[in-house]
């Protein structure tokens, strides 16, 4: 057809753009994409492969046998060591101790579970700490108030 040269040219140009886009896209898709679904499968492998921070339950008993046995017989038996202490990986690396375990002696740690709250199930052992210590109103609770009476032995096997 006459007088359609420019139409053919622009059609060709658009075709080239299209081919470029399709090819470019093809090379930019990550390798493992779509292997199991519409996602990068390697992302799943990476997520699954991350190192755990908390140890397996009762890992501590490996070395701290006595404490573990005492705790297993006490009221705190259902509380994992890492709830009150720090995580295993802050203390053990490649099956060996590499750093001291941080010990939290604050009354706040106890208060997390035992401060009296209306929303807590009634069966839970709970006290109003300020009242329990017979503090005057407005007095601050001493930092290690709980441990002064309830010592470590007491806590592991109350």
């Amino acid at each position: 057809m006459e007088h359609t040269k420019h139409i053919w040219r622009i059609s060709l140009l658009l075709l080239l753009v299209l081919i470029g886009a399709v090819l470019g896209r093809h090379f930019l898709i990550p390798d493992s994409f779509g292997k199991a679904g519409f996602y990068r499968y390697d992302a799943l492998v990476e997520l699954m492969g991350k190192e755990p921070v908390h140890g397996a339950p009762d890992s501590c008993a490996d070395c701290h046998d006595e404490k573990a046995l005492a705790k297993a017989a006490g009221l705190h038996r259902s509380v994992q060591c890492e709830v009150c202490h720090d995580v295993l990986s802050s203390h053990i690396r490649d099956d060996d101790k590499y750093a001291d375990m941080a010990i939290n002696r604050s009354y706040k740690l106890c208060a997390y579970c035992h401060q009296k709250l209306v929303a807590r199930p009634a069966a839970m052992v709970q006290v109003d700490i300020a009242e329990h210590l017979e503090l005057a109103p407005g007095d601050a609770i001493p930092a290690e108030a709980c441990l002064e009476c309830h010592d470590s032995e007491n806590i592991h096997a109350p």
């Binding site: 492998v45 921070v53 140890g55 259902s78 690396r93 490649d94």
Partner: peptide
């Protein structure tokens, strides 16, 4: 452990078996 902790699942048991898994690389 299973009897003393009522929240134990089969998975927890497995976890206990796989103790030291913290050092595992996948």
């Amino acid at each position: 452990r299973d009897t003393r902790r009522n929240d134990f699942t089969r998975r927890d048991f497995l976890a206990t078996a796989a103790k030291g898994a913290g050092a595992l690389g996948l």
